[in-house]
Simulated scan of single mutants.
Amino acid sequence: MNITYRSATPDDALAVSELARELFPDACPHFIPVDAIEEFNDDKLNETVFAEFLDQSERMIINLAQGEDGKLLGYTLLDTQPDPAELLDTVDKNSAYLSKFYVHPDARGTGVAHELMDRVVDDAQQAGFASVFLGTNIYNERANAFYAKNGFEIVGERIFPFAPGIDCTDYVRARVL
C-alpha cells in the first residue's frame, strides 16, 4: 500500500470531516445511542468545524495519511494551545493535546497509525512541548492498547460530557517526549 503523509490544508476540510464522521462511532462505547452519535457528528465533526481548525494552523496541526487513490486513511489533530480545563493536575502544563487520532479500518495493521504517531511526536517536539496528552474512552480497548504501546501512560480520568444526560469516562494519558 502506497501511503502519502502530509499536513492538511483548508481544502481538506470536507474530506477530513467525512472521515471523522465515518470513524468516530468506532471510538464510542456500546451504550451510546446511534442518534446521540449522529448528533455529535453533526455538531462537532462537521465541515465548518474542521475548516475552523484548519484556519488556526498556528494552533491546530492536522496530519493526514492518504492512499494512492486519494482516499484519506487516517488523520490526527494536535492542539498546541489546549484549554486549561483539559489539563489535569497530573498533566505537565507544557503539553500539547492530541485531540483526535483515527485510522480507517482499511489501513489498520499497515503501519499507518505508527507513522501518524511519529508525526504527532515530531510536531510536538518541534513546537517545544515536554509531553503530549490525550483522552480516550475507558472502553475503547483497541485505542487504549495502541496508546499504551506507544508510551502513553494513564495519569488520571476525566468525565467527557458526550451529550445531555450522557457522560463517558476517559482515561487521560500522557507521553513524555
Rank of each mutant, 00 (worst) to 15 (best):
I3M: 15
I159C: 09
A145W: 05
Q81F: 00
P84W: 03
P161H: 14
G109R: 03
D26Y: 13
N63D: 14
S57W: 04
E86Y: 13
D106Y: 01
F160E: 08
I61E: 06
E153G: 02
H114M: 12
E68H: 03
I159L: 13
E153V: 09
L23A: 07
Y139Q: 11
L72W: 09
V103A: 05
A107E: 08
D26K: 02
D118R: 11
F152E: 05
S7G: 11
E39N: 10
L72V: 07
I159G: 03
Q81N: 09
G74D: 08
A36P: 04
A51N: 05
V16K: 09
G156Q: 10
E153K: 08
F53P: 00
A113T: 01
F101A: 06
A15I: 08
F31R: 09
I32C: 04
D170I: 01
V112P: 05
I159P: 05
D167R: 02
E68T: 04
N137F: 07
S57L: 09
K93L: 07
Q66V: 14
N46L: 00
F162C: 07
D122M: 11
D79Q: 02
Q126A: 15
Q81P: 01
A20I: 02
L72A: 07
P33D: 05
K71W: 03
D69N: 13
E157L: 00
E58N: 15
I159T: 14
A148P: 02
P10L: 03
G74C: 10
L134E: 04
Q66T: 12
L77V: 13
G165D: 12
F53I: 02
V103E: 08
A107K: 02
A148H: 08
R173Q: 15
D89K: 08
I154V: 15
M1Y: 14
P10F: 13
L98W: 02
S7E: 14
A113C: 03
V112Q: 04
N2Q: 15
V49P: 06
V16P: 11
D26R: 08
D92M: 05
D89C: 00
A36V: 05
G70A: 12
M1F: 14
F146H: 05
